[in-house]
């Protein structure tokens, strides 16, 4: 994929839950190395949108492309696509019955068929990257929330994905642990990782994002660079949202 050929393309994507329209005519193009932050009120469809990208939700209208592969019902090797798209969840979702190390090694062995020793090396490398190598043999329950989320990031990185998706990664954390996770994400961004991040952390958006997208009721309301988005938002709803979220 060349530098201008988009890594992810979403064209007129729609998603319904029964009668409820969660996503409507959603369009997005993400090129390699771009950092996108998506924000908006609850129920705006941000999570649904990001979950459509790795097909944890199936879109009802429109088309989604990861590189050259389109996500459809007939897609034979969905897991091949999922290998390239890493995801970090709000509730970490570490495998509770495995040690940290095993958490990081499982998908490598099963999905990428990496031999055990190499998998362990990769795991320790990323564990070092998120700065908690000493936790390798502990169980998730023994770690703090911030540490668990960092492990979750490392677990996704071990698959060496092309793009990382973050679904409100810090929303379930106690305030004092939010920074350690944001630091890791900022470091990733600096190293050139393509990422789409759903979050309320506006400081992170300001310093890291190439583009900020504001969603409401399943649609994109405003899309701009951070300077314009925070400095001179065009849409009234954006201004309202920003005033609510930035004054406490």
């Amino acid at each position: 994929m060349s530098a201008t050929h988009p890594l992810i393309r979403m064209e007129h994507v729609g998603k319904n839950f029964g009668l409820f329209k969660a996503l409507h005519d959603f369009n997005l193009e993400v090129t390699k190395g771009e950092r996108i932050v998506v924000c908006g009120p609850s129920g705006s469809g941000k999570s649904t949108m990001i979950r459509c990208i790795n097909r944890l939700e199936k879109h009802d209208e429109g088309r989604i492309f990861i590189g050259d592969i389109e996500l459809t019902e007939k897609l034979e090797d969905l897991n091949a696509v999922r290998r390239e798209v890493g995801m970090v969840f709000q509730s970490f979702n570490l495998f509770p019955h495995m040690t940290i190390l095993k958490n990081l090694m499982l998908a490598q062995k099963l999905v990428r068929k990496t031999p055990k020793d190499e998998a362990r090396e990769v795991a320790m490398h990323y564990l070092n990257r998120v700065k908690i190598p000493e936790q390798a043999d502990k169980y998730p329950i023994q770690l703090s929330g911030g540490q668990q989320q960092r492990v979750a990031i490392a677990r996704a990185l071990c698959m060496k994905p092309e793009v990382m998706l973050f679904d409100e990664p810090t929303s379930a954390l106690d305030p004092e642990m939010i920074n350690e996770v944001l630091e890791v994400m900022t470091g990733l961004a600096k190293d050139g990782m393509t990422m789409i991040c759903v979050t309320h952390e506006m400081g992170f958006a300001r310093s890291v994002a190439d583009r900020v997208i504001f969603m409401d009721a399943g649609e994109i309301i405003e899309e701009a660079t951070p300077e314009i988005f925070f400095g001179a938002p065009r849409n009234e709803r954006t201004k309202l949202f920003l005033s609510q979220i930035l004054t406490h």
Binding site: N54, L56, N79, A80, R82, R83, V85, G86, M87, F89, S91, N93, L94, F95, P96, L106, A107, L110, V111, A152, R155, A156, M159
Partner: peptide, 12 residues
């Protein structure tokens, strides 16, 4: 959530 994490990692 645990099963979704497995899905996201590409486990069948």
């Amino acid at each position: 959530g645990i099963l979704e994490a497995g899905e996201a990692l590409g486990l069948n």
